[in-house]
């Protein structure tokens, strides 16, 4: 057991533990807040996979952006309209089917992929400049398309918010 292994199990435990709270908690606010630890744990796993840029982006986008939006949504709806926001179990049969299909796919991928297990296999190198070069050369079109899609979403959001006037 070296520090790397301990860190891996620690982050895996944080991720899975908090993810199970997200799924099983009856109080939707608790689900929202435990998503924080899920995102944090996943970011930790990315760090252990030597993907520093992805890890920090994970924190930045999911914790700083999406999670805050989710929490805002919950907070503005529960107490203002007096709706009791609780998550229960509905639509059991379709849910089981979808989950089974997804789990089957994931397990299939897990068994058939050739994993590089050793952390030394990849080695640590600076990722940011490489990602930047790739985005502005080989992957320029997807990058630009993504930014246009985001712009459209932004304009659309502004339109919906201003409709009353």
């Amino acid at each position: 057991m070296d520090l790397y292994t301990i860190a891996f199990y620690l982050f895996a435990f944080i991720t899975l533990g908090s993810a199970s709270i997200v799924v099983f908690s009856k109080n939707i606010l608790y689900s929202g807040f435990s998503l924080l630890f899920t995102f944090f744990g996943v970011a930790g796993l990315y760090v252990l996979l030597m993907a520093d840029f992805i890890a920090i982006t994970q924190l930045m986008i999911y914790v700083g952006g999406i999670l805050v939006l989710v929490l805002f949504g919950i907070m503005l709806t529960t107490k203002v309209i007096n709706v009791d926001m609780r998550s229960g179990t509905f639509q059991t049969l379709p849910a089981v089917l979808v989950v089974a299909a997804l789990a089957g796919t994931l397990i299939g991928i897990f068994w058939t992929t050739d994993w590089r297990i050793s952390p030394e296999a990849a080695g640590f190198e600076k990722t940011a400049s490489k990602i930047g070069e790739m985005l502005l050369s080989s992957y320029l079109l997807p990058f630009e398309v993504a930014s246009v899609v985001l712009l459209v979403a932004l304009v659309g959001a502004a339109m919906i918010a201003r409709r009353e006037k």
Partner: peptide, 12 residues
């Protein structure tokens, strides 16, 4: 980048 990202935990 890390400093900007880590400070976002404060908001939550």
């Amino acid at each position: 980048f890390f400093i900007v990202a880590a400070s976002s935990l404060v908001v939550v």
